[in-house]
Nucleic acid binder design. Structure first.
Length: 609
RNA sequence: GCCGACGUAGCUCAAUUGGCAGAGCAAUGCUCUUGUAAAGCAUAGGUUAUGGGUUCAAGUCCCAUCGUCGGCUCCA
């Protein structure tokens, strides 16, 4: 996010520019749609938006912005920016404001909540009831608004502003409220910054995992198989299995025990766990067999719990760490699906740790350290932690408040001990307990929730879990749910974009391609490949009829780490001419030397070749 | 699920106002035997997502379904 020096974004000039741009855009909209009702129009991370209610057409359908409308609005907006006007603040009493905004139902709702002390003028939560409201005006355009703005419209450069897109958006983000028409725009200090931003958007498009997944033959989405049910192609499978094997090893050395559970389970299992009512709307319909209902597994927890219950547990058995790459199925709404990052069938690198209360602290720290290890290995340096707590005002969260308190306390203590900063976000918890999420920011500054650790006192109670303590009495264990990757699908999707398809050697589906210069070198190329295979490397021989140059180009486009060119000279010297995908020509080296070098890079999980 | 846009060869895209479905890449065959990012020629490839409708005539217009994309909601 671009900020001026170290000032918080909210206090930066860019924020004022964008907020002002939003007002001028709304002014432009009103010139074409005088009847439009205004909702809210705040600055956001990389621009701004404004929501409008355009009313209904003669068929009762909501009026929406067309592409032409957007073009016209943008043109008008630029004119209005250049035609200078000052932004002037004033205040009105609640009664005056009600009067003034009498024709603006959305503003009236905000004023009512302002007066009740629920929100501020920008729609953000507030504490104190307001007696006056802040108003900003430029020319004829007046908005309920806390500001701040730039002093004059001219200070928003017309050539540094762009309208980006439109879309429906629910009023107050509530799908039960009317759907408004939102216009997104962006604004920057100057044209250079705008162009840089637009270029960044283009780059993001080029490294989109859906595009690269096709080009690099990693996965396929088939309409016939079903929406959100990805098929892993051979190369994508290598990538995924390398990740799984990396985590599996890391887990075995930390005392985890792999288990395997079925893809379906009786509905009673999920009713007992309490998952069923929470996830009912996002489930595949239960399968009815001989009068019994089975559900596609939406989560692995209850299955692992039944493993815990399969035999009496002693305090000596704990912690019991059960791990599974467990496939789960959730019937996400169609509009939510997206490539690999949002699917209906996915695999959670799931584990449930059954621990004694006195082990909770240490085990939680162990999980946090494992996640840190995973992120570090991937070269993910830019991430933050988020403590998700229950919202006392919501009925979404089960269990008694004491459980929640001790869970939250356990997470805070663990985070403190490992020196990890975190932000607290109310209402981000799982229904059964608080959690610490790891949110990774990729090279394009987008944030993704990946790893998660959750403390759960509830399910042990629901399933009546117990262990026999050293006092001979029955005690209740605590559960930790955790997934460092989050889901294999999402993680791979993010990894594709993070590395722009140029995976570290240990992950690259094809690590090297041998390129014979002429047909006469095919045999030698195959010998080289055989040797490297024997060394555990994934090598492919390009026996196509193209010229060497074309084969190099193809390998470059496939982002294969090494191109091993072999001709007469290499054949003679038992060597390969090594070229990297970074356009680096390392020259000839003996095959054994290349193998040793590559093996080391794989063993070290080096991030680049 | 809601709002909007879109769906033409394996991929990326063309196809005046409705008027003979086409190109590049990829694939296949042949020729060339090549030294670090695209050799040449040829061949094949399509019920224009699916199903209806309007029309002398539909890739193009209308309806429905499926799918994809951009948002909203939701979320690993």
């Amino acid at each position: 996010m671009a900020t001026d020096d170290n000032i918080p974004y909210e206090e930066s000039e860019l924020y004022r520019i964008r907020h002002s741009a939003a007002h001028v855009m709304a002014e432009a909209v009103l010139t074409f749609f005088p009847e439009a009702k205004l909702a809210i129009g705040p600055p956001i991370a990389e621009g701004f938006y404004y929501d409008f209610d355009l009313g209904k057409d003669e068929n009762g359908k909501p009026i929406t912005f067309s592409e032409d409308d957007l073009n016209n609005i943008e043109k008008k907006m630029k004119q209005l920016l250049k035609k200078n006007a000052s932004f002037d603040q004033s205040s009105k009493s609640i009664a005056e404001a009600r009067d003034f905004f009498a024709a603006e139902p959305y503003k009236l709702e905000l004023i009512a909540e302002l007066a009740a002390g629920k929100v501020d003028e920008n729609g953000n939560p507030s504490q104190e009831p307001a007696s006056e409201v802040s108003i900003y005006q430029h020319r004829e355009f007046v908005d309920l608004c806390r500001g701040p703005h730039v002093p004059y419209t001219k200070q928003v450069k017309a050539n540094a502003v762009k309208i980006l897109r439109t879309g429906g958006a629910y009023w107050r983000g509530d799908e039960n409220r009317p759907q408004l028409q939102r216009i997104y725009g962006t604004a920057w200090h100057n044209k250079t910054e705008l162009d840089a931003y637009l270029k960044r958007l283009e780059e993001a498009k080029a490294r989109d995992h859906r595009r690269l997944g096709k080009e690099l033959e990693l996965f396929h989405l088939s309409a016939l198989v079903g929406s959100g049910l990805p098929l892993w192609l051979p190369k994508g499978t290598i990538l995924r299995e390398e990740l799984e094997s990396f985590l599996r090893q890391a887990q075995v050395s930390r005392g985890y025990q792999p288990v395997i559970t079925p893809h379906i389970g009786k509905i009673d299992l999920y009713i007992t766990s309490g998952h069923y009512p929470y996830y009912k709307d996002s489930q595949y319909t239960p399968i009815d067999v001989d009068g019994e209902k089975f559900m596609l597994k939406p989560m692995n927890c209850p299955h692992h719990i039944e493993i815990y219950k399969s035999s009496p547990r002693s305090y000596r058995d704990l912690p019991l760490r059960l791990a599974e790459f467990g496939a789960v199925y959730r019937y996400e709404q169609s509009g939510e699906l997206n490539g690999l990052t949002r699917v209906r069938g996915f695999t959670v690198d799931d584990s449930h740790l059954f621990v004694r209360p006195d082990q909770l602290h240490e085990e939680f720290i162990g999980v946090v350290e494992l996640i840190q290890h995973v992120f570090e290995t991937m070269g993910f340096t830019d991430f933050r932690a988020r403590l998700g707590t229950n919202d006392p005002n919501s009925d979404k969260y089960a269990g008694d408040p004491k459980m929640w308190e001790s869970g939250i306390e356990a997470i805070k203590q663990a985070a403190e001990q490992v020196g990890m900063a975190y932000s607290v976000e109310v209402g981000e918890a799982a229904f059964y307990g608080p959690k610490l999420d790891f949110i990774f920011r990729d090279v394009l500054q987008r944030e993704w929730q990946l790893g998660t650790v959750q403390v759960d006192f509830l399910l042990p109670e629901r399933f009546d879990l117990e262990y026999i303590g050293d006092d001979g009495e029955r005690h209740r264990p605590v559960m930790i749910h955790r997934a460092p990757f989050g889901s294999m699908e999402r993680f791979v999707g993010i990894l594709i974009e993070h590395f722009n398809g140029a995976f570290p050697l240990w992950l690259a589906p094809v690590q090297a391609v041998v390129i014979p210069i002429t047909d006469n070198h095919f045999d030698y190329a195959q010998q080289v490949a055989n040797k490297l295979h024997a060394e555990g490397l994934r090598v492919h021989v390009d026996t196509g009829s193209e010229r060497m140059n074309k084969k190099i180009r193809n390998a470059q486009l496939q982002k294969i780490p090494y191109m091993l060119v072999v001709g007469d000279q290499e054949l003679e010297a038992e060597a390969v001419a090594v070229r990297t995908r970074n356009n680096e020509n390392k020259g000839a080296m003996p095959v054994v030397d290349f193998a040793a070098m590559a093996r080391n890079l794989v063993a070290d999980k080096a991030l680049d070749v």
